[in-house]
Design a protein around this nucleic acid. Structure first.
Length: 259
DNA sequence: ATGACTCCCAGTGGGAGA
């Protein structure tokens, strides 16, 4: 089973790239489930037909201008939940569904802007709510994958300039403590289960030719539950779509499970 | 360096992203 996450930075702009990428992946093994972040489209304008024509069922949850998430799957998703139950949120950030027996959670974590900002405080509250809800989800679903744009670097290996960016947004001790708290629920960073190239990143700024110079961050993650850890066969960042014309600033992350 | 680039909604500029 192959699962993936991709922050597309506007699905209306990136739809052709998403469909091309799914087609490319199918030459090896098709992606069974794909979660998207920053679709930036309201549900009435979501390109459902084009995605279904490509062989995927899709659940989505969006809003105007900002945020927006989607869950694409070949088999279809059941028990779909939008956002974090019990956490009042104006922003469309989470979509969850059960696909082929796996609880798949696709999430667009808050950016946080700056450590002293209101947005950072919201990020901390959101992370608290996510953790509390995940605790109950994990009790109900042994096979669970949480993936998406976490907007958190796990450690300095995930940062192109760990000295210059120390303590800045995505790299603060508070954010990393929240990430660790997710692991402590019984989740595992699938990417670090395997040997990876040095300086592996999933996001590069559009400015200053950051991709060409590989000045990036690894902030898109796939977390697998303990029950899935042994079944996890690979986890890779696919930089190819970042080389497209008009790319998203994020690259997709793919995990392969022996299911 | 309060920048750079891209997207959105707007409407010939500004917010947000990371």
């Amino acid at each position: 089973m192959k699962l993936a996450t991709w922050n597309v930075n506007s699905l209306s702009v990136r739809l052709p790239q998403v469909l091309d990428w799914l087609q490319q992946q199918a030459n090896e093994h098709p992606i069974d489930a794909l979660v998207l972040q920053e679709t930036k489209t309201t549900d009435d304008k979501f390109p459902r037909e084009a995605i279904e024509a490509a062989g995927y069922q899709v659940d989505f949850f969006g809003q105007k201008t900002y945020n927006g998430v989607a869950l694409l799957s070949r088999a279809g998703a059941t028990d779909v939940v939008r956002n974090i139950p019990g956490f009042e949120d104006e922003m469309a950030r989470v979509i969850t569904g059960t696909v082929q027996g796996v609880r798949v959670i696709g999430a667009y974590f808050p950016n946080g802007q700056a450590p002293d900002s209101d947005k950072f405080a919201y990020k901390m509250k959101w992370l608290d709510a996510l953790r509390a809800w995940l605790h109950t989800e994990l009790q109900q679903h042994q096979q669970l994958v949480l993936m998406g744009d976490f907007n958190i670097t796990v450690d300095d290996r995930d940062v192109w300039d760990p000295v210059g960016l120390a303590g800045t947004i995505h790299c603060t001790a508070e954010e990393r403590a929240h990430f660790q708290a997710l692991l402590d629920l019984g989740l595992c960073d699938a990417f670090r289960l395997f040997a990876q190239p040095d300086k592996s990143y999933s996001w590069w700024d559009y400015r200053e030719m950051a991709f060409r110079r590989n000045r990036g961050l690894r902030i898109d993650h796939v977390l697998v539950s303990q029950a899935l850890k042994e079944a996890t066969q690979a986890c890779v960042i696919d930089k190819a779509p970042r080389k497209n014309e008009r790319p998203s600033d994020h690259a997709p992350v793919i995990v392969t499970l022996a299911l």
